[in-house]
Design a protein around this nucleic acid. Structure first.
Length: 671
DNA sequence: CCGCCTCGAGTTCT
DNA sequence: CTCGAGGCGG
C-alpha cells in the first residue's frame, strides 16, 4: 500500500512549485495536463483520507482551478434546508407546532430516508434533461449537467404519455451504493491505488470530476424526492402522490418511504430505521418528515430558511472528533504489546467512548497518529470504536511520531519484534502481566470455566503471589483466599466450588486453557481427540502431530516447543497431582446424526438458546460449527440482529434457517 | 504458488 | 466482528 501522507505531501509540494513557476515566475515547467493529473490525484487522495486535507492544501484554494471548472447553476426556486430533530421530544414539538397552525386537527406525514449523499436539482424542459446543479448555498450551486448525465438512475427523458410538462425541476439525492463503493475500492486496491474513505465523499468527489467519464466510473445513483417547479401539468395534492408521479415519470424514489397518520407512527419509524440502517445498501443519516398535504405545506410556509412543514430527524452520530490524550500499552496473554488510545471522553451513538485499540505500532505509523492529535473516531455497524486517523490541521507543531516502548511496560524486560511480524512481544515467560492474562484465560468459559476469576481477581492473585501459574489455582484454600481484600465467606465458598468443578472439564479444554500458541478451542479439540492423553501429546514428535487433520508445521512446532519447556511440563504434572482430568475420549470415527457432515454457521441472537448451547446441539447432531460463511456452509442459523454473515449467506445462496428449524432437526434424532 | 477456508486473538461499554 | 495468518487443495 502506498504511503498516503507522504504522497500527499509530495503532491502538494509539486503543485505549489508549479503554481509558483506559473503565476509568479511566469515560467511553467510542467504541462497543463501533467498539472491536472497531479491535482486530480491529490483531490482523490484527500477524498480517500479526509484527515489529510489541510487548510493550506492547493485543493482548498478558493477560485483555483477546481472551483473555476464549473459554471454557476441558479436554482429557480431555492433548495431548502431543514431544521433538525434529535429525539422523540423534538419530533413531538414539531407536530404540536404543525397542528396548531393547521387548526388542531390530525396531520398525516410522509417519512422518507435521509440518504447520505449530495442533493441536486435536475431541470427538464419539454421532457428532456436540460441542466443539473448541486445544492450549493441553496440559491446557486455548481452546474454538473455532464456528470449527472452519467448517473444511470437519472432519466435523460421523462416517461410520459402525451405531452410532457413544459418545465419541471426534480430534486433528489445523488449517492453511492455501498456495494458499488466496495467494488470500486476493490478495483482501486488491485490497481495499487489508495481506497476511498466512504461512499459519501466518493459520490461528492465523483460529481465534481472534470471528466464525466471519471464520474461514470464511480457508478453513482439517484433518488428523487421533491419538485422545485412544476409547469404545464396539474400539480399533485400530496407528497405521497408526488412520489408516485415521480416514479411514473421514470425516477427512482426510495422504496422505504412511509405514510404515517400520526406522529406516533412517525416515531415508530425512527426506531425501526435506526435498527435497520446497516442492512441498507446505502448510508442514511436520518429521516425526513414532511407534511403530506401540499396545500397545508403552502399554508405553513417557512420561517427564515427552514420550512415549517418538514423536519430532518437525525440519528445519533456514529463518528466524532476528540483529543487523543495518550497512547498506552497492554500486554496480552501471548506477550503481545497492544497499544490503545486514551481519548477525551466523547459521545458516539449514545455511549461514551474513551478507549480504542490501536492494534500495533505499524498501524499507528501508517496512520501517523500522534499523542495530542485531534482524531476522528467512528463506531460503525459494529460496536467497537475505531480511530480513523488524525485531523492534521489541528496538530501541535511539537507533536512527535509515536514509538512503542522498547521494554515491557509490565516487567521492564526488552521487547522483541521478529522480522516479518506485526506484533511486538514481551518474551519473558514470568512477566506479571502475562501471568495475569494466562490465568484469566484459563478460567474463561471456553476453557476451564471457573466463574469468579476474572481480570480483577486474577490480578490480585498474581499480585499477592498466591498464584504464579495455572496449577496454583488448585492449591487455593479458604485461609489463603481470606487474605485478599473484599472476599467474603460466601464468595470464597462459591469460588472453591467452581475450582473443584473445573477438574472434570477434560483434556481439550485444559489444552485450550494452557494457551499454547496457535492452539485455540478448535485445534485443542482436534489434538485431544487424536491423542487422548497429555502424555501422548507431550511425547509426540513433529511427524506424529502433522498427521492430525488441520495441524500443520507451525502449530506442530508450537506444541513441541511448549512441551519441551520444563516449566510447562511441571505445570502439567502439578495439574495431574491436583486431580485435573487430563484425558479425552478418542474421536469417534465418523460423525452420525441428522447434521452429519454438515457445516453450520451461527449468527445473531437466537430467541432462547445461547451461542454455546446452539453449538452443542449442532455438534451433538453430528454437525460442525464454523465461524465464517463460505461455499461449504450447509446452513446459516440466524437470529435477531444478524450481521454481515447473513448478507454473505444470501449472496452465496446458502439456506438461512432459524432456531425452531435447528431444534426440530436436532430433536428428530433423539426420538 | 495462489486462492479459498478456517482458526486465533484481541476488542468497548453497560 | 474483523483482521491477520496458517493449512491445504488445485
Amino acid at each position: 500500500m502506498p504511503d498516503a501522507p507522504a504522497r500527499a505531501q509530495a503532491l502538494r509540494a509539486q503543485i505549489d512549485d508549479a503554481n509558483y513557476r506559473y503565476h509568479v515566475l511566469d515560467a511553467p515547467e510542467i504541462a497543463d495536463v501533467a498539472y491536472d493529473a497531479l491535482l486530480r490525484e491529490l483531490i482523490e487522495l484527500e477524498e480517500a483520507h479526509p484527515e489529510l486535507r489541510t487548510a493550506d492544501s492547493p485543493t482548498q484554494r478558493v477560485g483555483a482551478v477546481q472551483a473555476g471548472k464549473f459554471a454557476a447553476y441558479e436554482h429557480i426556486r431555492p433548495m431548502l434546508s431543514l431544521a433538525n430533530a434529535f429525539d422523540e421530544e423534538e419530533l413531538r414539538a414539531f407536530d404540536e407546532r404543525v397542528r396548531k397552525l393547521a387548526g388542531e386537527r390530525d396531520v398525516a406525514y410522509v417519512v422518507e430516508l435521509k440518504i447520505d449523499g449530495l442533493s441536486a436539482s435536475l431541470r427538464y424542459d419539454d421532457g428532456r434533461l436540460s441542466a443539473a446543479g448541486t445544492r450549493g448555498n441553496g440559491s446557486v450551486g455548481d452546474d454538473v449537467t455532464a456528470n449527472v448525465r452519467t448517473v444511470r438512475s437519472v432519466p435523460l427523458r421523462l416517461r410520459t404519455e402525451g405531452e410532457p410538462p413544459a418545465h419541471i425541476d426534480v430534486r433528489g439525492e445523488v449517492y453511492m451504493r455501498k456495494s458499488d463503493f466496495a467494488r470500486l475500492n476493490a478495483r482501486r486496491l488491485a490497481e495499487g491505488r489508495e481506497p476511498f474513505a466512504n461512499p459519501r465523499n466518493t459520490a461528492a468527489g465523483g460529481l465534481r470530476q472534470v471528466d464525466p467519464q471519471a464520474t461514470a466510473e464511480r457508478s453513482l445513483s439517484f433518488f428523487a424526492y421533491a419538485v422545485g417547479a412544476f409547469e404545464g401539468a396539474t400539480p399533485p395534492q400530496s407528497q405521497w402522490e408526488l412520489l408516485e408521479r415521480l416514479r411514473a415519470l421514470g425516477f427512482a424514489t426510495n422504496p422505504h418511504a412511509q405514510r404515517c397518520a400520526t406522529i406516533d407512527e412517525v416515531i415508530a419509524c425512527t426506531a425501526r430505521f435506526d435498527r435497520e440502517r446497516d442492512a441498507l445498501d446505502y448510508d442514511i443519516d436520518g429521516l425526513v418528515v414532511k407534511v403530506d398535504d401540499l396545500a397545508l405545506q403552502e399554508q405553513l410556509g417557512a420561517v427564515g430558511k427552514d420550512p415549517r412543514w418538514a423536519i430532518a430527524y437525525k440519528f445519533r452520530a456514529r463518528e466524532a472528533t476528540t483529543r487523543l490524550l495518550d497512547i498506552r500499552v497492554n500486554v496480552g496473554r501471548t506477550g503481545t504489546l497492544n497499544p490503545y488510545a486514551v481519548l477525551e471522553p466523547v459521545q458516539i451513538g449514545g455511549v461514551t467512548v474513551q478507549m480504542a485499540t490501536l492494534h500495533n505500532e505499524e498501524h499507528i505509523e501508517r496512520k501517523d497518529i500522534r499523542i495530542g492529535d485531534l482524531v476522528l473516531v467512528v463506531r460503525a455497524g459494529d460496536v467497537i470504536p475505531k480511530v480513523v486517523g488524525p485531523i492534521l490541521a489541528g496538530r501541535a507543531a511539537d507533536a512527535l511520531p509515536y514509538r512503542l516502548p522498547t521494554v515491557c511496560p509490565s516487567c521492564d524486560e526488552p521487547v522483541e519484534r521478529l522480522a516479518g511480524e506485526v506484533m511486538a512481544r514481551c518474551v519473558n515467560w514470568t512477566c506479571p502481566a502475562q501471568r495475569v492474562e494466562r490465568i484469566r484465560h484459563f478460567c474463561t468459559r471456553g476453557a476451564m470455566d471457573i466463574e469468579g476469576i476474572g481480570d480483577t481477581l486474577a490480578a490480585q492473585l498474581v499480585e499477592s503471589e498466591l498464584v504464579r501459574d495455572v496449577a496454583d489455582i488448585y492449591a487455593l484454600d479458604r485461609d489463603r483466599l481470606a487474605t485478599l481484600p473484599r472476599l467474603g465467606e460466601k464468595t470464597i465458598g462459591n469460588l472453591l466450588a467452581a475450582i473443584a468443578a473445573s477438574r472434570a472439564r477434560g483434556l481439550a479444554r485444559v489444552l485450550y486453557g494452557l494457551g499454547i500458541r496457535f492452539v485455540g478451542a478448535t485445534n485443542a479439540a482436534i489434538l485431544a481427540g487424536d491423542f487422548g492423553t497429555v502424555d501422548a501429546l507431550a511425547t509426540a514428535s513433529l511427524e506424529d502431530l502433522l498427521r492430525s487433520d488441520g495441524i500443520g508445521e507451525e502449530i506442530a512446532k508450537s506444541v513441541v516447543a511448549f512441551f519441551a519447556n520444563r516449566a510447562n511440563t511441571e505445570v502439567v504434572a502439578r495439574l495431574r497431582t491436583a486431580g485435573v482430568e487430563l484425558t479425552a475420549p478418542l474421536r469417534p470415527r465418523e460423525p452420525v446424526g441428522p447434521l452429519a457432515g454438515k457445516t453450520i454457521v451461527l449468527t445473531g441472537t437466537l430467541p432462547t438458546l445461547t451461542r454455546d448451547e446452539a453449538a452443542e446441539l449442532v455438534t451433538a447432531a453430528g454437525g460442525k460449527v464454523s465461524s465464517a460463511v463460505s461455499k461449504k456452509t450447509a446452513y446459516v442459523v440466524a437470529g435477531e440482529e444478524a450481521g454481515s454473515k447473513l448478507a454473505k449467506a444470501e449472496s452465496l445462496g446458502i439456506p438461512v434457517v432459524d432456531e425452531a428449524w435447528l431444534r426440530e432437526t436436532v430433536g428428530a434424532s433423539e426420538r
